[in-house]
């Protein structure tokens, strides 16, 4: 997931000296098309400042005077730079050219994963490790100083904000969540009261959530074994999971994809041991 081995293309819409500015409508159309495809775009003109250059491959688009492309290259040979005259080209064509450059430079392809993952507000976090013990998917870990960290964000289950519900400090955000304070909105006293009540989803569900899931699955299992009609069995399972989903704000797909009861138990124990070890240091 991290960009250690690959870089991302940086597109520059160049409208400085040696080029003609784009019409505002064309600029907007090109920007929109490129952003929708996941690219970062810098509009460089005669006024104002933009972020400095770095290792990213640069694709510089512009309406260059007389179609003459500037002759520039990175002296150190580390950065790919290409100029492209886009006079008369529409946004679709521009995007195709950028996509071809991305593939050629083996730069990262965007949009293959919905960026859904927890973000910790360290101004609030008390390092209590509840999130680490709760998450069954190994999203959390600790750094060398035993400080809680999000380590495997692509293991996170899309649209599931369940761990934010167990954080007693409302320190876990999912910026793409619909409501506050999970989306990053200011935490209110009322939220804190609510979050405290949920400190332990266990309390909310009248027992250990995993135990509950185990029990439910066991019951469901024994029912299923007697069940001939698989459709009916699935409906049963859904009915019981819907109830859990409603209570704990856990998406159905997540509950449906939970591992077998024994595996849940194993992972929960592993996570709890990790949390305890971190707290003991």
């Amino acid at each position: 997931m991290s960009l250690k081995d690959q870089t991302a293309v940086r597109i520059v819409l160049y409208e400085g000296s040696g080029s003609q500015p784009l019409e505002p409508a064309d600029r907007f159309a090109a920007m929109t098309a490129l952003l929708e495809k996941g690219f970062s775009v810098t509009r460089a003109g005669r006024e104002g400042q933009v972020a400095p250059a770095d290792r990213s491959s640069l694709f510089v688009l512009g309406r260059f005077d007389e179609g003459k492309l500037p002759q520039v290259e990175d002296a150190a040979g580390q950065v790919h730079i290409r100029f492209q005259d886009i006079a008369g080209l529409d946004a679709t064509r521009v995007t195709e050219m950028v996509e071809a450059f991305r593939a050629e430079t083996n730069s990262v392809k965007h949009g293959e994963w919905k960026p859904w993952f927890p973000v910790i507000d360290y101004d609030r976090c008390t390092n209590c490790m509840q999130c680490l013990s709760f998450c069954l998917f190994g999203v959390y870990g600790v750094d060398q100083g035993q400080k809680i960290q999000v380590q495997n964000n692509d293991n996170c289950k899309t649209n599931c904000p369940a761990c934010s519900r167990v954080c007693p400090e409302a320190a876990i955000m999912f910026p793409k969540y619909r409501a506050g304070p999970i989306n990053g909105d200011v935490v209110s006293d009322t939220d804190l009261q609510r979050e405290k009540m949920k400190v332990d989803i266990s309390a909310l569900l009248g027992g250990d959530i995993y135990q509950m899931l185990r029990d439910r699955s066991e019951k469901a299992k024994s029912r299923f074994s007697k069940e001939r009609d698989s459709d009916k069995a699935l409906k049963e399972r859904q009915k019981c999971l819907v109830k859990l989903a409603q209570m704990g704000d856990i998406p159905m797909e997540v509950l449906m994809s939970l591992p077998a009861p024994e595996e849940i138990q194993r992972r929960a124990q592993e996570a709890a041991a990790k949390a305890q070890a971190a707290l003991a240091k």
């Binding site: 500015p21 996941g38 810098t42 509009r43 006024e47 960026p115």
Partner: peptide
């Protein structure tokens, strides 16, 4: 007419 940086998705 101002210069600026635009990114698709800061979360990503």
């Amino acid at each position: 007419g101002v210069a600026f940086d635009a990114v698709a998705d800061l979360c990503e």
